[in-house]
Simulated assay, not measured.
Amino acid sequence: MTDDTMIEIRAGVELPARREEVELRTDDGLRLVGELAQPADRAPVATLVTLHPLPTAGGFMDSHILRKAAARLPALADLAVLRFNTRGTSSPRGTSDGEFGHGVSERADVAAAMRFVAERGLPNPWLVGWSFGTELALKYGLEHGIAGAILLSPPLHRTSEEELARWRSATVPMVALIPEHDDYLKPAEAAQRFEGLPNLTRIDVEGGKHLWVGESQTRRVLDEIVRAVNPSALPLPTEWPAASLAPTQD
């Protein structure tokens, strides 16, 4: 393999970044395990605080879109990516303390993540929720100084109409990606539920499914995240020099 060999960026490819195992501490005394990935040789321009899908249905910090965001976007778009397991959730990184709180006690988990971001001086934090994670973003995001929110496959099961209505007066942007073939909230219903939110950009994704399976759907999601957070990084490369893929050391 020559030094100028390029490889296609697909599942399993982890681009260079500074990767750090972290722990978050909640106000109710729990330890949450996570990882922070930052650009390898420069400061990030913005931060993605990711909120994973439902842990009782297999969601965790390594759910594939979030894992691929952490694997690619520090290098491709100068973004920091914080992933963590909410209370009672396990992944190869470890198990967070506590037990699943049905989206209620997880309020403290979101607060712990945002406090970590502030303490580390990470810039321009955007919440990126997927499925259950969108409920946490909608319920609690406005309690913190976020730059915006991105909702992937929002089911709107646990978010009350009152909580959703708070976003009508919010000044921060919100982007909602609605899969055409979603299992819970399809585009027509999403248009009704999200009506009247002035800072919402709703993106109906033709052919999309709730789990965003496959490289084409992964790229579409990551493209839309970057379009919202750091559009100057578009278009995202689809290849990367193979010679630079040795693990980056802190």
Score class of each variant (00 low, 15 high):
Glu161Asp: 14
Gly133Pro: 01
Gly208Trp: 11
Gln192Ser: 10
Leu32Gln: 12
Glu119Val: 03
Ser96Lys: 07
Val117Ala: 13
Arg87Leu: 12
Leu36Thr: 03
Thr95Phe: 12
Gly214Val: 04
Leu76Tyr: 00
Asp182Thr: 01
Pro198Lys: 11
Gln249His: 07
Arg72Leu: 02
Gly88Ala: 08
Val81Phe: 09
Leu185Gln: 05
Ile225Val: 13
Leu66Ile: 02
Ser160Glu: 08
Arg83Phe: 06
Pro74Val: 04
Leu79Glu: 05
Ala242Arg: 09
Pro123Phe: 12
Ile65Ala: 10
Arg158Cys: 00
Asp182Phe: 03
Ala165Cys: 05
Leu36Arg: 08
Pro55Leu: 15
Gly208Gln: 11
Ala80Phe: 05
Arg42Trp: 02
Ala113Asp: 10
Arg158Ile: 01
Ala233Gln: 12
Leu66Thr: 01
Ala43Met: 06
Val110Phe: 06
Gly148Met: 11
Pro173Val: 11
Tyr140Ala: 13
Arg120Gly: 04
Trp167Met: 08
Ala118Glu: 15
Thr95Ile: 09
Pro235Val: 05
Pro173His: 14
Gly12His: 04
Ser216Trp: 03
Ala11Lys: 10
Ala113Asn: 08
Gly214Met: 10
Leu51Phe: 09
Leu200Lys: 06
Ala17Thr: 00
Ala43Trp: 01
Gly133Asp: 13
Gly145Asp: 15
Glu20Asp: 04
Leu152Val: 05
Thr50Glu: 15
Asp28Thr: 01
His144Thr: 07
Tyr184Pro: 00
Val226Phe: 14
Pro231Gly: 14
Glu21Asn: 09
Arg120Leu: 12
Arg19Ser: 15
Pro74Leu: 13
Arg87Trp: 14
Gly141Ala: 09
Glu189Val: 02
